[in-house]
């Protein structure tokens, strides 16, 4: 009886796969051309996160790395063209962390007008895992700093200081429009649930020290608020919640396209993030050929994500 049911189930799957393929083709034929990058939209995300789904079983790792970097370099250019201020990059294999030096070099080449001493090109930004640093927190229990394992690459001009003002004016004068302002953060799995565990460890160590010195209060008195934790994770040393997240699979496309997964992206920062994922590869027919270029994030998908975001409604529980 079970075998009969399993055979029937397999038949349902075959029919489902055929319908999905047909729908994918139909959608591709009927998809609208997304608006240009710099087109006026009702809203654009200030902070965009791109999540790359890398294939751990990929035999041609070199091709995948090239496609990943190409996607990143293109994304930087598209973000600047669209006026996005922050770009967070994440992948499920930690490949971007390893390639961060290449991204930095790319940025230096892209913006030679900003020299590294003035561009706040920070590499890497890893605050010390310590419990006796400066306080920026509300409660003494969260008077700690947490290593969130992020790398920040800034193409933003530093805030002018009186001493260096003259030099900057001269430098900016040479570039007619001034360099675009984009903050790029590369994050990894360690910035995810591990960051909450790191925050808990730092707070526990701090509390233990307080208890040892003061012999009071008790562990049960320890309490933290959402705001406290938010300050640790999204504050100066952390990274803020993206407005939009674009999930992009680097794996060869298949139909039916599997549903999206967040692949270990930091849970704290996705409370109200709009999630964009395109079940049909937005590229033309080439996207289904499985060639190396099919893995690269393309501009139409990027623009389609911006279009989708501009149409999204925020009700915030109301």
């Amino acid at each position: 009886m079970l075998n009969f049911r399993l055979s029937l189930l397999c038949f349902i799957h075959v029919v489902y796969a055929l319908i999905a393929k047909f729908l994918a083709l139909w959608r591709r034929r009927h998809q609208r051309e997304p608006l240009p990058l710099d087109a006026p939209r009702s809203k654009i995300p200030q902070h965009l996160a791109i999540v790359f789904d890398l294939d751990s079983t990929q035999p041609h790792a070199k091709v995948e790395e090239e496609s990943l970097l190409k996607s990143v370099y293109n994304s930087i250019a598209w973000c600047e063209a669209a006026g996005i201020e922050k770009l967070t990059l994440y992948d499920n294999q930690g490949a971007l962390m390893k390639s961060s030096a290449l991204v930095r070099d790319h940025l230096s080449r892209r913006h030679p007008e900003i020299d590294s001493s003035e561009s706040e090109l920070e590499y890497p930004l890893t605050p010390p895992h310590s419990d006796d640093c400066d306080s920026r927190s509300i409660s003494p229990d969260v008077d700690v700093r947490v290593d969130l394992h992020t790398i920040t690459l800034n193409t933003r001009l530093p805030v002018p200081s009186k001493r260096r003002n003259v030099a900057r004016k001269r430098r900016v004068k040479d570039t007619p429009k001034g360099p675009p302002s984009l903050q790029i953060k590369i994050i990894s799995r360690q910035s995810s649930k591990g960051a909450l565990a790191a925050a808990a460890r730092s707070m526990a160590a701090r509390r233990h020290k307080l208890q040892t010195i003061l012999r009071n209060p008790t562990p049960q008195d320890f309490s933290i608020s959402i705001e406290d934790l938010n300050l640790l994770l999204e504050g100066e040393e952390g990274f803020s919640s993206p407005d939009l997240m674009l999930l992009h699979s680097m794996k060869p496309p298949i139909a039916p396209v599997p549903p999206p997964e967040l692949l270990g992206f930091p849970p704290w920062q996705i409370r109200l993030t709009e999630i964009s994922y395109f079940p049909t590869p937005i590229l033309g027919l080439g996207a289904c050929s499985g060639g190396p270029h099919a893995l690269t994030l393309d501009e139409r998908t990027f623009r389609a994500a911006l279009d989708e975001f501009s149409g999204a409604q925020m009700r915030l529980g109301k």
Binding site: P259, P267, L272, I275
Partner: peptide, 21 residues
């Protein structure tokens, strides 16, 4: 048609949970 998690099961769904909108 909303494609957000709106503060629901963020910890539990950020790994290999299939998301359906």
């Amino acid at each position: 048609g909303v494609k957000r998690l709106s503060d629901f099961m963020l910890w539990q769904s950020c790994e290999d949970t299939q998301l359906h909108f």
